[in-house]
Simulated assay, not measured.
Amino acid sequence: MADLTSSWLFWALLSAIFAALTAIFAKVGVHDIDSDYATLIRTVVIFGVLAALLAATGRLQVPTAIPGNTYLFLVLSGLATGASWVCYFRALKLGDAAQVAPIDKLSVVLVAVFGVVFLGERLTLVNWIGVMLIGGGAILVAQR
């Protein structure tokens, strides 16, 4: 089991499962309230769960021990996450989960492109074919 939980694939698959559940739960959850308020509730829950997890496992860190550059990119990531969630919940309020989620997953295509452009990552021809299939598949799934 230790080998399994130290695998990136294990955690990525769990992430996909929870992301799918997020879409379904959020679609039901935004039905009777403002989508931005729904995002706030979700954020408070996430904050509480993570704070409890870090406290329970003794992994809280001294904030001054974290480099400034790390803070900068984590703040930028947090802002991007917040913007993504606001847009995602607004889209779920207006559209079907089966349409919104695949378009949201075009982020996979964008991560591949941004990884190459900004991080110097390299993708093979097979990888690029996969990226194109993901993009095309997301668009096809979202069609009505």
Rank of each mutant, 00 (worst) to 15 (best):
K105G: 12
T5I: 15
P102E: 02
V111N: 09
V113F: 09
A23P: 04
W11F: 12
F18E: 06
M1A: 04
V141N: 00
T57S: 07
L76Y: 00
V117N: 13
H31R: 07
W11L: 13
I24Q: 09
T64K: 09
M1S: 03
L106K: 08
G68N: 02
V109S: 01
P63N: 08
I41C: 13
L40Y: 09
V113E: 08
G48P: 05
T22S: 12
S7H: 04
L125N: 06
S84V: 10
A55R: 09
F10G: 07
A20Q: 00
R90T: 12
G82W: 02
F47T: 12
L60N: 01
V113G: 03
L54P: 02
V45R: 07
D34F: 15
A65R: 03
R144M: 08
L106D: 06
S7G: 12
V30A: 00
A142M: 11
T124M: 03
A56R: 07
D104W: 04
L72K: 06
Y71A: 01
D36H: 15
T57P: 02
V28A: 14
A112V: 06
A16F: 13
D3P: 10
V49C: 12
E121G: 14
G95Q: 03
N69F: 12
D96I: 11
E121Y: 15
Y71I: 10
T64G: 03
G136S: 06
A83F: 02
D3G: 14
L123E: 01
L4R: 15
L60T: 08
S84N: 00
R42K: 11
A55Q: 00
L125P: 07
R122E: 07
A2E: 09
P102V: 02
A101H: 05
G29D: 03
V45A: 11
D104Q: 08
N127D: 13
A80V: 03
I103E: 06
V75M: 00
A19W: 12
V113A: 12
A52V: 13
S77M: 07
F73R: 10
L110G: 00
A23K: 09
T124W: 05
V141D: 02
S35Q: 10
P102C: 01
G95D: 03
G48D: 04
G137W: 02
S77E: 08
A112E: 01
K105P: 03
T124Y: 04
M132H: 08
V86K: 03
A12I: 09
A38P: 03
